[in-house]
Protein backbone atom coordinates (compact mmCIF):
# COMPACT_ATOMS: atom_id res chain seq x y z
CA UNK A 1 0.00 0.00 0.00
CA UNK A 2 1.48 3.32 -1.00
CA UNK A 3 1.93 6.14 1.47
CA UNK A 4 -0.65 8.13 -0.38
CA UNK A 5 -3.43 5.73 0.47
CA UNK A 6 -5.81 6.68 3.23
CA UNK A 7 -8.64 4.61 4.64
CA UNK A 8 -12.03 6.14 5.14
CA UNK A 9 -15.42 4.72 5.98
CA UNK A 10 -18.54 5.70 4.04
CA UNK A 11 -21.84 4.38 5.34
CA UNK A 12 -20.05 1.63 7.19
CA UNK A 13 -18.05 0.52 4.18
CA UNK A 14 -14.29 0.85 4.44
CA UNK A 15 -12.77 2.24 1.26
CA UNK A 16 -9.30 3.25 0.21
CA UNK A 17 -8.78 6.73 -1.08
CA UNK A 18 -5.83 8.65 -2.39
CA UNK A 19 -4.48 11.59 -0.44
CA UNK A 20 -5.45 14.79 -2.22
CA UNK A 21 -8.83 13.46 -3.29
CA UNK A 22 -12.00 14.99 -2.03
CA UNK A 23 -14.54 12.78 -0.28
CA UNK A 24 -16.74 12.99 -3.36
CA UNK A 25 -13.94 11.89 -5.68
CA UNK A 26 -12.99 9.04 -3.39
CA UNK A 27 -16.59 7.88 -3.18
CA UNK A 28 -16.96 8.04 -6.97
CA UNK A 29 -13.83 5.94 -7.41
CA UNK A 30 -15.24 3.39 -5.00
CA UNK A 31 -18.55 3.23 -6.85
CA UNK A 32 -20.48 4.98 -4.12
CA UNK A 33 -22.68 7.82 -5.34
CA UNK A 34 -23.01 11.01 -3.35
CA UNK A 35 -25.79 13.16 -4.87
CA UNK A 36 -24.43 16.47 -6.23
CA UNK A 37 -25.64 19.26 -8.47
CA UNK A 38 -23.14 22.10 -8.84
CA UNK A 39 -20.14 19.81 -9.05
CA UNK A 40 -18.72 18.79 -12.44
CA UNK A 41 -15.84 16.33 -12.74
CA UNK A 42 -13.92 18.54 -15.20
CA UNK A 43 -14.14 21.66 -13.05
CA UNK A 44 -12.90 22.78 -9.66
CA UNK A 45 -15.56 22.39 -6.96
CA UNK A 46 -17.88 25.30 -6.22
CA UNK A 47 -19.61 24.38 -2.99
CA UNK A 48 -22.80 26.16 -4.06
CA UNK A 49 -25.61 23.65 -3.99
CA UNK A 50 -24.76 21.77 -0.76
CA UNK A 51 -26.55 18.69 -2.14
CA UNK A 52 -23.34 16.70 -1.69
CA UNK A 53 -23.29 17.47 2.02
CA UNK A 54 -22.34 14.43 4.07
CA UNK A 55 -21.58 14.06 7.75
CA UNK A 56 -17.87 13.92 8.35
CA UNK A 57 -17.19 12.53 11.80
CA UNK A 58 -20.68 13.69 12.69
CA UNK A 59 -20.45 17.21 11.26
CA UNK A 60 -22.05 18.32 8.00
CA UNK A 61 -19.57 19.24 5.23
CA UNK A 62 -19.69 19.47 1.45
CA UNK A 63 -18.01 16.36 0.09
CA UNK A 64 -16.96 18.14 -3.13
CA UNK A 65 -14.56 20.35 -1.19
CA UNK A 66 -13.58 18.27 1.81
CA UNK A 67 -10.23 16.47 1.44
CA UNK A 68 -9.94 12.86 2.58
CA UNK A 69 -7.71 11.99 5.50
CA UNK A 70 -7.02 8.80 7.38
CA UNK A 71 -9.87 7.48 9.45
CA UNK A 72 -12.68 9.81 8.36
CA UNK A 73 -16.09 8.34 9.13
CA UNK A 74 -18.66 9.55 6.66
CA UNK A 75 -22.42 9.27 6.55
CA UNK A 76 -23.93 9.70 3.11
CA UNK A 77 -26.97 7.65 2.18
CA UNK A 78 -29.11 8.18 5.27
CA UNK A 79 -32.78 9.11 5.43
CA UNK A 80 -31.95 12.25 7.36
CA UNK A 81 -29.38 13.58 4.90
CA UNK A 82 -31.45 12.60 1.87
CA UNK A 83 -34.44 14.45 3.29
CA UNK A 84 -32.29 17.57 3.63
CA UNK A 85 -31.03 17.13 0.07
CA UNK A 86 -34.57 16.75 -1.20
CA UNK A 87 -35.51 19.98 0.51
CA UNK A 88 -32.62 21.77 -1.20
CA UNK A 89 -33.82 20.49 -4.59
CA UNK A 90 -37.31 21.67 -3.70
CA UNK A 91 -35.93 25.09 -2.80
CA UNK A 92 -34.41 25.35 -6.27
CA UNK A 93 -37.69 24.37 -7.90
CA UNK A 94 -39.56 27.17 -6.13
CA UNK A 95 -36.75 29.72 -6.46
CA UNK A 96 -36.60 29.66 -10.23
CA UNK A 97 -39.43 29.25 -12.71
CA UNK A 98 -39.07 25.69 -13.88
CA UNK A 99 -41.62 24.80 -16.54
CA UNK A 100 -40.42 21.25 -17.05
CA UNK A 101 -42.98 20.28 -19.71
CA UNK A 102 -41.68 22.84 -22.19
CA UNK A 103 -37.95 22.77 -21.39
CA UNK A 104 -35.39 21.42 -23.86
CA UNK A 105 -33.37 20.00 -20.99
CA UNK A 106 -36.24 17.77 -19.85
CA UNK A 107 -35.08 14.20 -19.33
CA UNK A 108 -31.44 15.25 -19.40
CA UNK A 109 -31.75 17.77 -16.58
CA UNK A 110 -29.76 17.05 -13.44
CA UNK A 111 -32.12 19.08 -11.28
CA UNK A 112 -35.04 16.90 -12.38
CA UNK A 113 -32.95 13.79 -12.03
CA UNK A 114 -32.04 14.65 -8.45
CA UNK A 115 -35.72 15.27 -7.72
CA UNK A 116 -36.51 11.79 -9.02
CA UNK A 117 -33.67 10.11 -7.20
CA UNK A 118 -34.40 11.86 -3.91
CA UNK A 119 -38.12 11.22 -4.15
CA UNK A 120 -39.62 14.65 -4.75
CA UNK A 121 -43.12 14.34 -6.17
CA UNK A 122 -44.16 17.96 -5.86
CA UNK A 123 -42.43 21.10 -4.63
CA UNK A 124 -44.72 22.32 -1.85
CA UNK A 125 -42.58 25.15 -0.48
CA UNK A 126 -43.86 28.64 -1.30
CA UNK A 127 -43.05 29.70 -4.86
CA UNK A 128 -41.09 32.93 -5.33
CA UNK A 129 -42.46 33.67 -8.84
CA UNK A 130 -39.93 36.36 -9.66
CA UNK A 131 -39.40 37.53 -13.21
CA UNK A 132 -35.93 36.65 -14.50
CA UNK A 133 -34.23 37.97 -17.56
CA UNK A 134 -33.92 35.95 -20.74
CA UNK A 135 -30.87 36.61 -22.91
CA UNK A 136 -31.21 35.52 -26.53
CA UNK A 137 -28.72 38.02 -27.95
CA UNK A 138 -26.16 35.39 -28.92
CA UNK A 139 -26.64 33.67 -32.25
CA UNK A 140 -25.92 30.16 -30.98
CA UNK A 141 -26.45 30.09 -27.22
CA UNK A 142 -29.12 31.53 -24.96
CA UNK A 143 -29.59 32.08 -21.25
CA UNK A 144 -32.96 31.37 -19.68
CA UNK A 145 -32.47 32.59 -16.12
CA UNK A 146 -35.82 31.08 -15.10
CA UNK A 147 -33.92 27.80 -15.12
CA UNK A 148 -30.71 28.98 -13.47
CA UNK A 149 -29.74 27.27 -10.22
CA UNK A 150 -26.63 29.47 -9.74
CA UNK A 151 -24.37 26.42 -9.70
CA UNK A 152 -21.56 28.45 -11.25
CA UNK A 153 -20.50 25.66 -13.61
CA UNK A 154 -20.48 28.01 -16.61
CA UNK A 155 -18.58 30.61 -14.59
CA UNK A 156 -15.88 28.10 -13.68
CA UNK A 157 -15.77 26.46 -17.12
CA UNK A 158 -15.42 29.79 -18.88
CA UNK A 159 -12.63 30.78 -16.53
CA UNK A 160 -10.69 27.55 -16.07
CA UNK A 161 -11.25 25.70 -19.35
CA UNK A 162 -12.22 28.30 -21.96
CA UNK A 163 -10.01 31.03 -20.45
CA UNK A 164 -12.60 33.62 -21.36
CA UNK A 165 -14.09 34.67 -18.03
CA UNK A 166 -17.31 35.37 -19.88
CA UNK A 167 -19.57 34.66 -16.90
CA UNK A 168 -19.88 35.84 -13.34
CA UNK A 169 -22.51 36.70 -10.80
CA UNK A 170 -24.17 39.91 -9.81
CA UNK A 171 -26.02 41.07 -6.71
CA UNK A 172 -26.27 39.06 -3.55
CA UNK A 173 -28.66 36.85 -1.64
CA UNK A 174 -31.95 35.96 -3.25
CA UNK A 175 -31.31 38.65 -5.89
CA UNK A 176 -28.11 36.98 -7.06
CA UNK A 177 -28.10 36.30 -10.80
CA UNK A 178 -25.88 34.93 -13.52
CA UNK A 179 -24.10 37.82 -15.23
CA UNK A 180 -22.16 38.00 -18.50
CA UNK A 181 -19.08 39.91 -19.58
CA UNK A 182 -20.97 42.42 -21.67
CA UNK A 183 -23.23 45.43 -21.39
CA UNK A 184 -25.98 44.23 -23.71
CA UNK A 185 -25.99 40.49 -23.37
CA UNK A 186 -24.28 37.28 -24.27
CA UNK A 187 -24.05 38.18 -27.96
CA UNK A 188 -21.32 40.69 -27.13
CA UNK A 189 -19.13 38.14 -25.37
CA UNK A 190 -16.50 35.83 -26.78
CA UNK A 191 -18.63 32.79 -25.90
CA UNK A 192 -19.10 30.15 -28.59
CA UNK A 193 -21.36 27.11 -28.69
CA UNK A 194 -18.27 24.90 -28.63
CA UNK A 195 -17.13 26.33 -25.29
CA UNK A 196 -17.02 24.12 -22.26
CA UNK A 197 -19.21 26.71 -20.57
CA UNK A 198 -21.99 26.02 -23.06
CA UNK A 199 -21.81 22.27 -22.39
CA UNK A 200 -21.90 22.00 -18.63
CA UNK A 201 -25.20 23.56 -17.54
CA UNK A 202 -27.03 20.99 -15.38
CA UNK A 203 -30.43 22.46 -16.35
CA UNK A 204 -31.71 24.22 -19.43
CA UNK A 205 -30.44 27.65 -18.44
CA UNK A 206 -27.42 27.93 -20.72
CA UNK A 207 -28.53 26.12 -23.84
CA UNK A 208 -27.21 25.78 -27.37
CA UNK A 209 -29.82 26.89 -29.87
CA UNK A 210 -31.43 24.67 -32.51
CA UNK A 211 -30.59 21.34 -30.92
CA UNK A 212 -33.40 21.00 -28.36
CA UNK A 213 -35.74 18.02 -28.06
CA UNK A 214 -33.39 15.88 -30.16
CA UNK A 215 -33.95 12.71 -28.14
CA UNK A 216 -37.47 11.31 -27.94
CA UNK A 217 -39.13 10.92 -24.56
CA UNK A 218 -38.30 7.53 -23.15
CA UNK A 219 -34.73 7.53 -24.46
CA UNK A 220 -33.41 10.58 -22.68
CA UNK A 221 -30.58 10.31 -20.18
CA UNK A 222 -32.65 10.05 -17.01
CA UNK A 223 -35.87 8.58 -18.39
CA UNK A 224 -35.08 5.05 -17.23
CA UNK A 225 -31.79 5.34 -15.36
CA UNK A 226 -31.39 7.32 -12.17
CA UNK A 227 -28.67 9.91 -11.86
CA UNK A 228 -25.65 8.37 -10.18
CA UNK A 229 -26.25 4.91 -11.63
CA UNK A 230 -23.19 5.33 -13.87
CA UNK A 231 -21.06 5.72 -10.76
CA UNK A 232 -22.67 2.87 -8.87
CA UNK A 233 -22.25 0.58 -11.87
CA UNK A 234 -18.49 0.74 -11.48
CA UNK A 235 -18.51 -1.89 -8.77
CA UNK A 236 -20.03 -5.33 -8.56
CA UNK A 237 -22.06 -4.09 -5.61
CA UNK A 238 -25.77 -4.45 -6.29
Amino acid sequence: MSQDTVNIIIDGVEIQATAGQTILEAADAAGMYIPRLCHHPDLPPGGHCRVCTVKVNGRPASSCTFPVSEGLVIENDTDEINAQRRRIIEMLFVEGNHYCPSCEAGGNCELQALGYRLGMLAPTLPYLRVKRELDATHKDVYIDRDRCVLCGRCVRASSVVDKKDAFGFENRGIKKRLSVDAVHGLGETAVSAADKAAQVCPTGCLTVKRVGYATPVGRRKYDKTPIGAEIEKKTAKV
Binding site: N97, Y99, C100, P101, S102, L121, K131, D146
Partner: peptide
Protein backbone atom coordinates in the same frame (compact mmCIF):
# COMPACT_ATOMS: atom_id res chain seq x y z
CA UNK B 1 -54.92 13.44 -5.82
CA UNK B 2 -53.37 16.20 -7.91
CA UNK B 3 -52.13 14.84 -11.20
CA UNK B 4 -49.91 16.47 -13.80
CA UNK B 5 -47.70 19.50 -13.95
CA UNK B 6 -50.49 22.10 -13.99
CA UNK B 7 -52.20 20.76 -10.87
CA UNK B 8 -48.88 20.36 -9.08
CA UNK B 9 -46.93 23.49 -10.07
CA UNK B 10 -49.33 25.56 -12.15
CA UNK B 11 -47.57 24.17 -15.20
CA UNK B 12 -47.44 25.88 -18.57
CA UNK B 13 -50.35 28.24 -17.77
CA UNK B 14 -48.33 29.53 -14.81
CA UNK B 15 -45.79 31.00 -17.21
CA UNK B 16 -47.88 34.14 -16.80
CA UNK B 17 -47.07 34.26 -13.09
CA UNK B 18 -44.10 36.55 -13.51
CA UNK B 19 -46.11 39.02 -15.58
Amino acid sequence: IAIGSCAITGGVPSMRNTV
